[in-house]
């Protein structure tokens, strides 16, 4: 086992899949240099024909990928910022999501839309969003949101091999996170949640950066409350069974996610849990999300984005215990 950063784990996944299947290629703005270091070094190994820099048009990036996928390639299109998916909305949310259905199943669309999500980098309202609920709300798209280097590599390999469109959000503030990644080949399947930490008093379902926040909080309060941290890893498909099983054990649920609270990931997961395990709940579930506001630029973004303290407060609310030291 090696200890490598999330960014390098993603780079390895791309390189391994490009080596494994010559139909795999990367397309996007500045992917040869790699703005976030995810696609860096690939052009040296696979050449500019398979690592294609494009003009500044997200619609063109998405459209290129979509057409190539219909022609039998397995493109990985990088939007750089998840916020830019809105520009390519018609290609991603309408065409990519629906064309397999619209064509009666006669075409496959094995393509991946890569994008960096999340705030915390003081990038302002147009470069800090985590539009997970937008993707979850769109039938026809899968969504991966890895929280560790291991999951980032395994999920990206699965995404590339998937015959349907996958949106893959990597979190800006996780890119340097180091973690164990095996030397040998592996993939992480979609729709299988991972229990990142076992506990008995409260279930915290968290995605992406919030998983790391939740694990830190769980460790801080471990003498006073036993927190179970579950990472769904993919939000579509969603492994609700694992979440329900955990809530049946703990009776208390917190969902921590960086998308805006209203109509968000927390709302969806909590609703599904209430529908399936109402009688197991010992307290009203709580959401920990971005406030219903644009994410401000500069340091005040912390007042809108969910923080470890927000997760701690939610755990206190659902357990009725005071945990602050």
């Amino acid at each position: 086992m090696r200890d490598i950063p999330y960014r390098i784990a993603m780079q390895e996944a791309l390189a391994e899949e490009m080596a494994r299947d010559e139909k795999v290629f990367v397309v996007g703005e500045d992917v040869q240099a790699g703005t976030f270091g995810v696609t860096s070094t690939l052009v040296q190994r696979f050449g500019p024909a398979r690592v294609i820099d494009t003009p500044l048009s997200e619609t063109a990036v998405a459209g290129t990928a979509l057409g190539a996928a219909m022609a039998g390639y397995r493109p990985v299109a990088d939007f750089m910022f998840a916020d830019f998916i809105y520009i390519a909305g018609n290609e991603v949310l309408v065409n990519a999501a629906k064309w397999r259905f619209a064509h009666g199943g006669k075409v496959s669309l094995p393509l991946v839309f890569l994008a960096a999500m999340g705030g915390g980098a003081r990038n302002g309202p147009e470069h800090s969003m985590s539009p997970e609920s937008l993707i979850m709300h769109t039938p026809g798209l899968k969504l991966a949101v890895p929280s560790t280097p291991y999951d980032a590599k395994g999920l990206l390999k699965s995404a590339i091999r998937d015959n349907n469109p996958v949106v893959f959000f990597y979190h800006k503030r996780l890119l340097g996170l180091r973690g164990d990644v095996p030397e040998e080949e592996y993939t992480v399947p979609f729709g299988v949640a991972d229990v990142k930490r076992e506990g008995t008093d409260v279930t915290v379902v968290a995605t992406a950066l919030q998983v790391q926040h939740a694990l830190r909080v769980a460790d801080e309060v471990k003498d006073r409350v036993s927190v179970e941290v579950i990472d769904p890893r993919t939000l579509e498909p969603l492994d609700i069974d694992s979440i329900v099983r955990s809530v049946e054990k703990t009776g208390r649920l917190v969902v921590a996610d960086e998308d805006t609270e209203r109509c968000g990931v927390g709302a969806e997961i909590i609703t599904q849990v209430i529908e399936r395990a109402f009688d197991s709940l010992d307290a009203p579930p709580k959401r920990v999300c971005a406030a219903n506001l644009p994410i401000p630029g500069g340091f005040i973004e912390a007042s809108v984005l969910p923080q470890p303290a927000s997760i701690l407060a939610a755990i206190e609310a659902v357990t009725g215990r005071t945990l602050k030291a």
Binding site: G251, F278, D279, L281, D282, A283, P284, V318, T319, G320
Partner: peptide, 26 residues
């Protein structure tokens, strides 16, 4: 809470005789 109600019903416990200790007096 829902689970408290369920367990109380299963064991024939009268909830009105219980002093709540949970959040919001539940």
């Amino acid at each position: 809470s829902p689970v408290a109600k369920k367990i109380a019903e299963e064991h024939g416990i009268d909830l009105s005789a219980i002093t709540p200790t949970g959040p919001d007096g539940r």
